[in-house]
Amino acid sequence: MTHELKASFAFVERNFFLTRRYWGWELAFLVYSVAGALSISLIGVEQGSPTLLLSLMIGAIFWNYLSVVFSWIAETIAVERWEGTLEYTFMAPVRRWTQLLGSCSYAIVYGLIHTAAILVVLVLFFPQLHLSQANPATAATFMALGSFSFVGIGMMAAILPLLYVERGAQMCFVLQSCLLLVSGVYYSVDILPPWMQALSHLSPATYVLDGVRQGLIEGTPVTALWGDIWPLLIMAVTFIPLGIWAFGRAERYAKRTGKLKRVG
């Protein structure tokens, strides 16, 4: 057990090395994320509605967090697959959940830092915002809870680059944009056609965003948001085991059909 935990740190450290090595890109990515969040929030300014501004801002920031966590998990597999190191990682005496735990922990820490940076820029950019009645505890709770289910989804998405070297990472983006569409990131899910609304209930982001908005805009305490909490709890305890299980299945499939091979 201690060995597994130590080994999972290997993934944290390695991903940190990668971030450090690509720091120029990290900076560019931050600029990209800030620009995206800003341009969406500005719609609220144009409409002259502080509530809309805040709502869009929350959507942009939390969507950023969730997608960063999600894509880091999937992307580390994509990079390993691309470089050919995945064969070596799979040969190492570590359990798959150890590997996924390490990648996910790093993804969450990275996501938090990245998102905090965007938050700071946005708050500075929109001095007219007043968050006096916001309930940050609610926002934090939902973010933490939502992380679990997004980690589970990230693990399932990691199957794609595991099986498809060239296009796997892009396929993750497809999945991500479908989640974006049904989760009510920039609008209320009520405006979606009924069949899409049904799908929105399956996305953890729907509940996270609803909870965070209620907390920051209305100042609602967590205790009053049970309706958003329990779906997230269920998703957290099902998606992660499901993710690990599915990843294991995909690994077996890859080993049976010879899909792990790059060259040689």
């Binding site: 740190f9 290997a10 990668l18 064969e87 190492a92 060259v263």
Partner: peptide, 22 residues
């Protein structure tokens, strides 16, 4: 094929391997 994280140094790559093997 020498499969590595090509942007990382030999030491970084090897330290990853070392940790995986405890």
């Amino acid at each position: 094929d020498a499969a590595f994280f090509k942007k990382l140094s030999p030491l970084e790559n090897l330290s990853f391997a070392a940790r995986l093997y405890g």
